[in-house]
Design a protein around this nucleic acid. Structure first.
Length: 492
RNA sequence: GUCCCCAUCGUCUAGUCAGGUCCAGGACACCGGCCUUUCACGCCGGCAACACCGGUUCAAAUCCGGUUGGGGACGCCA
């Protein structure tokens, strides 16, 4: 096979959402798999809607995901001369024509057709205009768009889709479509093809919502006498109500940056995304980058749409449970050395970072991460639920406060007493701290759990956590003593 | 209204092309148990699906037809 060349062509009219990210990922995987090249092309021909902010957001999103490209970013607007030249060529060769129908006329016809339950679509009014008529209107300065003239042929046009198989459509089902606006600027259908030809794109991997565009673009490739790339149409991602996910109706929950800001691991998110419409054919679900590239193939992409299982207002899952599960899996199984830099960023953001964690306390930092990570879902949990490990200023949660502390008024005395015992300890170890805690419980006549969980509340502010004595040793003798002595302050 | 695509547990899916090994496998979620000072992790177990109707066949989740359902497109957006 010749070198594969693929492209990711976002339109910069909003943030990078999960549908776009998944498209980018599939393109990227296929490129890596085949040793090809990925082109990033910003399709900014809609000047009214394109923004700088969106461009940088999309690029940041791709960078966060680790989806890199080999060429670009190219900007479609830089190639408008190419697009115009192509349109001119089609006009010259009689493969396109000027259309003088106004927006208003078209809109009226469209609505009338819809109302009468008739077929909507361009009726070809200007298709057969005589040369003289056209010339006259043009001379008079009548605004005109350029429409592609769909060949009058019997039969069907089609292509072999890599995921869907043979796809065909009758020529007469395809309307003459606009390729250049009346203000002279070329439109998507044309630009996209001209750019793909120039960029020598070999495979077009995009959503199934482009299937009708593909039929039209096939005609453009033919008219422009260029080889047709391989097409692969990916299934769409729908919401739980089976509507196409979009920025407009779903907001930040479908934005890639939301997942970055909520403590997702970039690769875990890719791993989740790839499974939305693709599987390796066996039971594997967790892949390293290398494994996924090796396993990926276009023909194992699903045909049917998948649902992004986000349930608004769900108290337990703030996004698709599977996405969280995959993130958790990585969070607790990846090498601590790889996780630590990501935790560091989160701690820095929350003002909890100490430079010692990179030097003298490096091993302590690693051990602490390892100790607490099995209960966490996302990176930001290290700064919230894990706050007491990195700072003396943390909140005592209400539930453990009531259940594990206030319910046992004796703890007001017992815990400071235990603090005294701990302070005298020359060997502040798991074994010794446990021995003294149990002795304390026995002395005052309560179950060890009362003392232990009371201590957990005071020392970590949390209802649950790792083995308490591991926690004590991790947090350190002096801090533990200080925190235990503050116990009375927590009682009303 | 027209055209196109799709259809297996609640969700992501394996199995469909080459029909039998599938009274349908895995994962997430959920439920139960073990572990335990708590909560997790981990481990064990459970619940749960071939949309429907016909046809072909000794045999259909798998092939064919239809029905229903869902999605997409039909823009001087991309």
């Amino acid at each position: 096979m010749q070198h594969t060349r693929l492209r990711f062509p976002p339109s910069p009219t909003g943030y990078l959402h999960i549908g776009g990210a998944r498209t980018a990922l599939y393109n990227w995987l296929f490129v890596k798999k085949t040793g090809g090249r990925l082109v990033l092309r910003i399709e900014d021909t809609d000047a009214d809607r394109s923004t700088e902010e969106s461009i940088s957001g999309i690029i940041e999103g791709l960078e966060w995901l680790g989806i890199d490209w080999d060429e670009g970013p190219y900007f479609q607007s830089d190639f408008s001369a190419d697009h115009r030249r192509a349109a001119e060529k089609l006009l010259q060769e009689g493969k396109a024509y000027h259309c003088f129908c106004t927006r208003e006329e078209l809109e009226q016809k469209r609505e009338a057709a819809l109302a009468a339950k008739q077929n909507v679509g361009y009726d070809g009014t200007c298709r057969e205009l005589g040369e003289a008529q056209v010339e006259a209107k043009l001379q008079a300065g009548t605004p005109a768009v350029i429409r592609f003239k769909v060949p009058e042929r019997q039969g069907k046009i089609g292509y072999d889709d890599k995921v869907l198989g043979r796809i065909e459509s009758s020529y007469n089902e395809i309307d003459d479509f606009v390729i250049v606006r009346s203000n002279g600027s070329p439109l998507y259908l044309l630009c996209n093809v001209v750019d793909d030809i120039r960029d020598r794109i070999s495979h077009v991997v995009r959503g199934q919502d482009h299937m009708t565009n593909t039929m039209k673009q096939l005609l453009l490739y033919e008219a422009l006498e260029a080889p047709v790339p391989v097409f692969a149409h990916m299934p769409l991602t729908l919401d739980t109500k089976k509507a196409k996910i979009s920025k407009r109706s779903h907001g930040e929950i479908v934005a890639v940056e939301f997942y970055r800001d909520h403590g997702f691991l970039p690769w875990a998110f890719n791993n989740f995304l790839v499974l939305l419409g693709w599987s390796p054919g066996d039971d594997r679900e967790i892949f390293s980058k290398e494994e996924l590239i090796e396993a990926f193939s276009l023909d194992r992409i699903n045909k049917s749409a998948s649902i992004f299982n986000y349930r608004k207002g769900d108290p337990k899952f703030f996004t698709d449970p599977k996405a969280i599960a995959i993130n958790e899996h990585y969070l607790r199984t990846m090498a601590v050395e790889e996780l630590a830099p990501l935790v560091k960023e989160v701690l820095i953001d929350d003002g909890l970072w100490h430079n010692d964690y990179d030097t003298g306390l490096r091993q302590w930092f690693f051990d602490t991460i390892d100790l607490i990570r099995s209960r966490f879902h996302v990176l930001t949990d290290f700064a919230s639920m894990g706050r007491a490990y990195f700072s003396d200023e943390f909140e005592i949660e209400e539930k453990p406060l009531n259940k594990n502390l206030l319910k046992h008024p004796g703890l007001k005395q017992w815990l400071p007493e235990l603090a005294d015992d701990y302070e005298r300890l020359s060997d502040f170890s798991v074994e010794e701290t446990e021995r003294l805690a149990r002795a304390c419980a026995e002395r005052v006549g309560v179950k060890p759990g009362v003392v232990i969980n009371g201590m957990r509340t005071v020392v970590t502010g949390q209802l649950a956590g790792p083995s308490m004595f591991d926690v004590l040793v991790t947090i350190g003798q002096q801090n533990v003593v200080t925190r235990l002595r503050k116990t009375p302050q927590l009682f009303p």
